[in-house]
Amino acid sequence: MNLLSIFNQVEISHYIYLSTVLFSIGLFGVLFRRNAIILLMCIELMLNAVNLLFTAFSTYMGDADGQIFVFFIMVVAAAEAAVGLAILVLVYRNTRKTDVSFLDQLKG
């Protein structure tokens, strides 16, 4: 049964607002911070906001597809974190810093 009978009290709009706020905070972090690790963390935050909204819609509509999508997003986020952190370690090994503003020196 529903833990709190949440359907009677919380509308889907509240979850939409919450997810939008979370996504905006993550967007602000990506734009504002320079440390590449914090940037990756803010991307995870944005992905989690989307996950929360997917789950909310899935539960409210009674359709399990949304939760499967959350599952796939988690998989992609894990792969992204692994490769991103590997690149970050490589950048740190070459430049001794993780500042993304330093990376405008990259040449193709």
Partner: peptide
């Protein structure tokens, strides 16, 4: 997720995100 009756996702979120990805971040 628990409030939303998505119990499997709640557990997977803890294991994958809080358990694996964030430990990777902390380790780096």
């Amino acid at each position: 997720y628990v409030l939303l009756n998505a119990q499997f996702l709640a557990v997977v979120n803890l294991i994958v995100y809080a358990g694996a990805i964030m430990v990777l971040f902390l380790f780096v």
